[in-house]
Write a protein that binds this DNA or RNA. Structure first.
Length: 277
DNA sequence: AATCATCCCTGACCGC
DNA sequence: TGCGGTCAGGGATGAT
């Protein structure tokens, strides 16, 4: 149940760029057509084939693989998606939906048990019009995200803070794990209405968001069940989580058992003592 | 415009 | 052992 969030996608990006940049995609095999969002699978395979991988990028939870000809592969792993660089002789895992053949006789595999992930081809020119990508909020580790931004935006949001942190049009890249970790670290109850946070709480939340994402990246992501990087390796941040997935275990700040409740249909782990309503 | 509900999908888990 | 039901959850979509 660990969905790739910003730190996991960043780790996939870092591991894959070492292997992929400079290689040419010599062919595409599509086993599950619905995974290809646009254009139609046949056209997708044709347009991708023959192009060299120039660089990798990331925007929120989207991984971008830039190709020659100003083309860009846009990949979202959603919940259980994996993108793994492999040898063709390695047995093809179950739920492998798309395979990109590479000019060094290796391949890049898109694997996704729940079939929620999507792959799409666009161009640099049209990136600003791609659904999902175009409405993303600022990058939490970028310059546009600041304490002032948070203060300004929270003031006018009539929604629970946990739901807002998960809203990708508000801020790009947080998912359930890092949202819960940030709120716990900032000692803010997930059900609090965004507009009621005090300046002090907002400052704490800002710092907490940046910290948990940086620590997540430093530890190569969180692997609870499914997540692996581009080399097929698990991350290690799961051992450092303080709230997420720790129901019943002691809060590391005060010893109170971590509790779980639903906020906006999503489970939220929190400390009832440190994060009072 | 903002907010909420539903759906997609499989495997793990639970109770009987 | 097996079976059916429930849950997990990001984001697109439609409803309010």
């Amino acid at each position: 149940m660990d969905m790739p969030e910003l730190p996991e996608v960043e780790t996939v990006k870092k591991t894959l760029e070492k292997k992929l940049v400079g290689l040419t995609i010599t062919g595409v095999e599509i086993f599950m057509p619905k995974i290809i969002r646009d254009p139609a699978p046949d056209k997708f395979a044709m347009e991708v084939t023959g192009n060299k991988i120039s660089r990798l990028g990331r925007r929120g939870k989207y991984l971008l693989i830039h190709l020659t000809g100003e083309k860009v592969l846009i990949i979202h792993l959603r919940m259980t998606g994996r993108l793994v660089y492999s040898e063709p002789v390695d047995p093809l895992p179950r739920h492998t939906h798309v395979v990109f053949r590479l000019s060094n006789d290796r391949e890049l595999r898109f694997i996704d048990m729940r079939q929620f992930g999507r792959v799409q081809l666009s161009t640099v020119r049209y990136l600003g019009q791609v659904k999902g990508l175009k409405d993303l909020g600022p990058e939490p580790l970028g310059e546009e995200f600041s304490r002032d931004f948070l203060r300004r935006e929270l003031k006018r949001k009539r929604v629970r803070i946990k739901s807002l942190l998960l809203d990708q049009t508000f801020l790009a890249g947080l998912g359930n794990i890092y949202a819960d970790e940030a709120l716990h670290r900032a000692r803010i109850n997930p059900k609090r209405m965004a507009c009621t946070l005090t300046p002090r709480e907002i400052a704490n939340l800002y710092r907490s968001i940046v910290e948990v994402l940086q620590e997540g990246i430093e530890n190569r992501g969180t692997s609870i069940r499914d997540y692996v990087d581009g080399d097929g390796r698990t991350g290690s941040y799961q051992a450092l989580l303080r709230a997420y997935n720790r129901e019943g275990q002691k809060c590391l700040y005060c010893g109170t058992p971590i509790a779980r409740l639903k906020v906006g249909g999503r489970s939220s782990y929190f400390c009832p003592a440190c994060q009072k309503e």
